[in-house]
Design a protein around this nucleic acid. Structure first.
Lengths: 233, 233
DNA sequence: CTACGTCGTGTGGTCCTACCACACAAGATA
DNA sequence: TATCTTGTGTGGTAGGACCACACGACGTAG
């Protein structure tokens, strides 16, 4: 095992033993190096990995918000991983869109109708009504609405994946809108569909919500025209 | 932006520009440090992150298999991320099992009936017939069978996720088998169900395959009894 | 001419030391 | 009492040194 992996192994052990939890502060890099019997450079390499995986967060200075702190942000790992693997052409955009679709349909069907995420979703819909002339602002809230919907299903993993997928195809989606024949017509339709989806979820009609989500997403891509080019922005 | 992120930013740029692709060798650490205007320590931190994300692979020595090489292994990132997030209790095992179920059901429905992965799946089933008295060996092939099935859907992302999910709940599944009333009875049922699933997929009956997969997975967990304890091995 | 062993060279792996920027807290000062 | 200064611990970065490794080129013995 390589030296820098000592850190993640140690952290996993401490977490499993309950000596560390989310919010805990790790020892300083110099201290950890001494305790683990490795150099500070190796500690840092290990910490960088943990940071990239969304397990810890590093902050300089002193005080309660400084130092290396255990967090729980699985989306971060997916985020950067997706970006790079898409760039390497190993991960077709089509696969991401497809995965997004299957996750969202599932989430809509399993969403809990009294999840606080649905309140956020409702707020986003109101905001979108006021931004239907600005595609960029509209799409950003559109994406957040879908993520909120996914989180309403109560599955951390699905929520995190949706958040990352959203980010990795944001530029792609934005480019697709330029192909639309008439943005105001499309945005009006999208807004109506969003309302219908949310209403179905709140009403506890999972199956209907799932169908609406599927039509909603597939409809958008169909209208904009499928585009399989990688997101080389 | 922190210094070590220069590396991933640079790599993403090179990949997007087509100057690097999977299989390409990156410049040496010393060279890269000089070219990017950063220290070798920072280059190494950046490389460690890329390695953890499954984007590159580092090898010592000289020759064609040495140096830092661009790979495409998205499962690696998910793998370690899942392990640690489960350990931090931020990611319930229940969520992973649930996600696995939804991915597999989808994959079974969308599997291409002439995917080479199905041949691997068939071989695994034969091997399982010869290991029905050894739970450990049986379960390992069981897991691989399910991953192969997922890959048959042709979605890289879904395949990678299934592979990682399998790993992160392997220990959990193994523990569940100890609760079974009679292993030989269960294994016999599992083997029959596997055959039926594969047959449905090969026959191109996606919907039926999906239903069989759902019953297969849910049936196992039901028989073994649900267990939400984290995988603190 | 061939087969084997040696050595050079470039690779990542690890360590050490030094210095920097930062942010808070305690103390000194007006 | 309010403000400023200073101390201290944090991660961030840099540069240098040495190691183990693996291949390829070279030399040597057969």
């Amino acid at each position: 095992m390589r030296t820098h992996q000592t850190v993640s192994a140690w952290l996993e052990h401490e977490l499993a033993a309950g000596r560390l939890m989310i919010g805990s502060r790790l020892p300083g890099e110099r201290t950890m190096a001494e305790q683990l019997g490795i150099s500070r450079a190796s500690v840092r390499e290990g910490t960088r990995v943990l940071e990239a995986l969304g397990v810890v967060r590093a902050g300089v200075g002193s005080g309660p918000q400084s130092g290396t702190i255990v967090t729980g942000n699985p989306a971060l790992a997916l985020d950067s991983a997706l970006r790079l693997h898409v760039a390497s052409a190993h991960l077709p955009v089509r696969d991401i869109v497809e995965t997004r679709l299957l996750l969202e349909v599932w989430a809509a069907e399993h969403a809990s109708k009294d999840s606080p995420a649905l309140d956020r979703a409702a707020v986003l819909l109101d905001e979108m009504d006021g931004h239907d002339d600005a595609p960029a602002a509209f799409l950003e809230r559109d994406a957040l609405f879908h993520v909120a919907l996914a989180e309403a299903a109560g599955n951390v993993l699905v929520g995190a994946m949706m958040g990352s997928l959203r980010g990795s195809i944001a530029g792609y989606t934005q480019r697709l809108t330029t192909r639309l024949p008439a943005w105001d017509v499309t945005s009006g339709r999208l807004r109506r569909e969003h309302r219908a989806i949310l209403a179905a979820v709140v009403a506890g009609e999972g199956a209907r919500a799932a169908g609406l989500v599927r039509d909603h997403i597939e409809g958008f891509y169909l209208e904009a025209g499928i585009d399989d080019r990688p997101d080389a922005g």
